[in-house]
Simulated scan of single mutants.
Amino acid sequence: MDTLEAMRAFVKVAESGSFTEAARRLDVAKPLVTRAVQALEARIGTRLFHRTTRRVSLTDAGQRYLGKAAPALVEFDELEASLRGEAHGEVSGTLRLTMPVSLGVRYLVPLLAEFKARHPRLRLDLDFCDHLVDPVARGFDAAVRVSTRLEDSALTIRRIAASPVVLAAAPAYLARAGVPDTLEGLRDHQMLEVIAERAATGVPRVLAGDAALGAPIRANSVEALKGFAVAGHGVIRAPAFALAEELASGSLVRLLSDAALGEYVVSLVFANRTMMPLRLRRLIDHLALGMQDFAEVVVAPRARSA
């Protein structure tokens, strides 16, 4: 037996407590199971079983090995089954994705629900967070990012949509501080800042982290800053999709809508692979198609007076 089959033999002996029963379950001769476990112990350099004439039990090392080997074999078997299905065009297995909270909850979840309905054997493992995530280091198949300065040379980047930059503030704040007529006029306003935000394409310098701008409130979440903006604490800069509901309801008012503020690009980032899993390839195509009209998310007109 090779190493993988030896692991299977070990797990069957551990589960059944018997070399004879393990051989029966594997449908092989008992001596083959015995030699496989012995070879595994020799390679590891420690005994995995206590053996007596009456019973077989795991050593401490055997317990630790079983804790890792059993789930690893299950995962391997699932992977093989998934690949066999993909070879016949069937989407299955697990897709692990990470995405920003606002974009994910409002726009991606409905698309993912459609995708899951089309592929019932697929499992989705989703992570919602607003900080930058390395999909490879965290074990994700892909990460959805809202920015443009994607400098990860080891990763593949697929643009799937874009959303214009929007400036907005609450009516109460504008009544108190006035409505800015120009970008330079924003220097006299309280700007709410997203920590470590990557600047959007074409964002003017006055909006792209200029040191002259004060930031009374900083946060690593657009959703959090939006709450402060609605409460009247300052001007927020965010993708249009993140503020669409508040602008539609009037709890935030759009500012300087005629100014060239640039755009945020929505991209799917994933590891370079010689053979991309079918489930990921299909997902990328599904999201790109489903978000074709994403840039047309309409926001309310700019404020003209306090």
Rank of each mutant, 00 (worst) to 15 (best):
residue 1 M to Q: 12
residue 2 D to Y: 03
residue 7 M to A: 15
residue 9 A to V: 05
residue 9 A to K: 05
residue 10 F to A: 11
residue 11 V to T: 00
residue 12 K to R: 15
residue 12 K to I: 00
residue 13 V to T: 04
residue 17 G to T: 10
residue 20 T to W: 06
residue 25 R to W: 03
residue 37 V to K: 02
residue 41 E to M: 04
residue 42 A to D: 13
residue 45 G to M: 01
residue 50 H to G: 03
residue 51 R to K: 10
residue 53 T to P: 10
residue 54 R to E: 04
residue 58 L to G: 03
residue 58 L to S: 09
residue 60 D to P: 11
residue 62 G to D: 06
residue 62 G to R: 04
residue 64 R to N: 09
residue 65 Y to G: 01
residue 65 Y to V: 03
residue 65 Y to S: 02
residue 69 A to Y: 02
residue 69 A to T: 13
residue 74 V to W: 01
residue 78 E to H: 08
residue 81 A to W: 04
residue 83 L to A: 06
residue 89 G to D: 07
residue 90 E to G: 12
residue 96 R to M: 01
residue 98 T to P: 03
residue 102 S to T: 14
residue 103 L to M: 08
residue 106 R to E: 06
residue 106 R to N: 11
residue 106 R to M: 14
residue 108 L to G: 07
residue 120 P to E: 02
residue 121 R to M: 08
residue 122 L to Y: 13
residue 122 L to F: 14
residue 124 L to Y: 09
residue 124 L to C: 12
residue 125 D to E: 08
residue 127 D to T: 05
residue 131 H to T: 12
residue 137 A to T: 11
residue 137 A to V: 06
residue 139 G to H: 03
residue 141 D to V: 02
residue 143 A to S: 10
residue 143 A to P: 00
residue 144 V to K: 05
residue 144 V to C: 10
residue 152 D to K: 06
residue 152 D to N: 05
residue 153 S to P: 02
residue 158 R to C: 05
residue 158 R to W: 06
residue 161 A to L: 01
residue 163 S to N: 08
residue 164 P to I: 02
residue 166 V to G: 08
residue 174 L to G: 01
residue 180 P to S: 06
residue 181 D to C: 08
residue 183 L to T: 09
residue 187 R to Q: 12
residue 192 L to E: 09
residue 192 L to I: 02
residue 194 V to D: 04
residue 194 V to Y: 13
residue 195 I to H: 08
residue 199 A to M: 04
residue 201 T to G: 04
residue 203 V to Y: 00
residue 203 V to E: 11
residue 207 L to P: 07
residue 207 L to C: 07
residue 208 A to D: 10
residue 208 A to H: 01
residue 223 E to D: 10
residue 223 E to A: 09
residue 224 A to V: 15
residue 224 A to E: 14
residue 225 L to W: 04
residue 227 G to K: 15
residue 229 A to P: 14
residue 230 V to Q: 09
residue 231 A to H: 05
residue 238 A to V: 07
residue 239 P to Q: 10
residue 240 A to C: 05
residue 241 F to Q: 05
residue 242 A to D: 14
residue 243 L to Q: 09
residue 244 A to G: 07
residue 245 E to L: 14
residue 245 E to R: 14
residue 249 S to V: 10
residue 250 G to C: 11
residue 251 S to R: 14
residue 252 L to C: 11
residue 252 L to M: 12
residue 254 R to T: 13
residue 254 R to A: 15
residue 255 L to R: 05
residue 255 L to Q: 08
residue 256 L to G: 12
residue 257 S to C: 03
residue 257 S to W: 00
residue 260 A to S: 15
residue 262 G to S: 10
residue 262 G to D: 08
residue 266 V to G: 10
residue 266 V to Q: 04
residue 267 S to Q: 09
residue 268 L to P: 00
residue 269 V to M: 11
residue 269 V to R: 01
residue 271 A to L: 08
residue 273 R to T: 06
residue 275 M to L: 11
residue 276 M to F: 01
residue 277 P to S: 02
residue 278 L to H: 08
residue 279 R to F: 11
residue 281 R to F: 00
residue 282 R to N: 01
residue 282 R to F: 00
residue 283 L to F: 01
residue 284 I to K: 01
residue 284 I to E: 07
residue 288 A to R: 14
residue 288 A to Y: 02
residue 290 G to V: 09
residue 291 M to C: 09
residue 291 M to W: 13
residue 294 F to Q: 04
residue 299 V to Y: 04
